[in-house]
């Protein structure tokens, strides 16, 4: 039986791991390769590396990090942050990334999704969508939530599926950093209306939140950062709990 995935997310700045609380304050949480190896050994199903650096040499630094991670880590990983072209993706996949995640660049140039799916296959194209509710409507936001758009979450999600995305990583800006749980209502709607896997992100605070997002939110995978980085939740304990609640996990 296909299991629900637990995915720690490592925010990367200049080759180091950071975690933004509501995407603003940053705290150092260690060396990415070392952290990735530990996660791979302690039950993580996948990893996501999100590069938030804005320097000139970011492309080279990120490619170098991907290569070092691929050498050590024996579970799949996704790389995102600032990826805007077929060439960017080609370089990262060649360095050993399994999937790439695109966000703002997909909104600015939706054709990029088609191009990536055609060249590399849908299986390695994750489209990340950040959204928050404005007057009761889920609106897509860019640049880590700072820039609003006119795009409706569900319309955009359907469009990215049609264009060939293999997966959607949905982050609720309203929930991110709150530790009050995932945006399960919106997640369930996405999961029901679309036929590609949905990764839930934003709001994980305790184990019950994960149970809820798999049961109520119908999520295929759940992503979190600080609860794992600061050892508030051990993945193996989380998986035991999920299994007890009847959710299929790899243990």
């Amino acid at each position: 039986m296909l299991t629900k995935r637990i995915i720690p997310c490592l925010d990367i700045k200049n080759g180091r791991t950071v975690k933004g609380i509501n995407f603003v304050d940053l705290r150092d949480a260690g060396d990415p390769v070392e952290l990735a190896e530990i996660y791979a050994q302690t039950g993580a199903d996948e990893l996501v590396f999100l590069d938030i650096s804005a320097t000139e040499e970011r492309r080279r630094t990120l490619a170098d990090l991907v290569l070092r991670v691929a050498e050590k880590v024996n579970i799949p990983f996704t790389v995102g942050g600032g990826i805007s072209s077929v060439e960017d993706v080609d370089r990262l996949l060649k360095c050993g990334a399994d999937k790439v995640s695109i966000n703002s660049s997909a909104v600015k140039n939706p054709q990029l999704i088609n191009d990536l799916a055609a060249k590399f296959g849908s299986q390695c194209v994750v489209v990340a969508i950040d959204a928050k509710q404005i007057n009761g409507k889920w609106m897509v936001h860019l640049v880590g939530g700072k820039v609003s758009t006119e795009l409706d979450l569900f319309d955009w999600a359907k469009e990215v599926e049609e264009r060939g995305a293999g997966e959607i990583l949905f982050t609720s800006m309203d929930n991110d950093g709150t530790k009050d749980g995932f945006a399960n209502e919106a997640l369930a709607k996405l999961s029901t209306e679309l036929n590609i896997p949905i990764i839930a992100s934003g709001g994980a605070g305790n184990m019950q939140h994960f149970t809820d997002t798999f049961k109520e939110g119908k999520a295929d995978a759940a992503l979190a950062a600080s609860v794992f980085h600061f050892k508030e939740i051990e993945i193996v304990d989380l998986k035991k709990e999920l299994k007890e609640k009847g959710i299929p996990v790899r243990l």
Partner: peptide, 13 residues
Amino acid sequence: STRVKVPQIGWNQ
């Protein structure tokens, strides 16, 4: 078929 999510992504037995 579309009875399941496609692609299948993840850990299965």
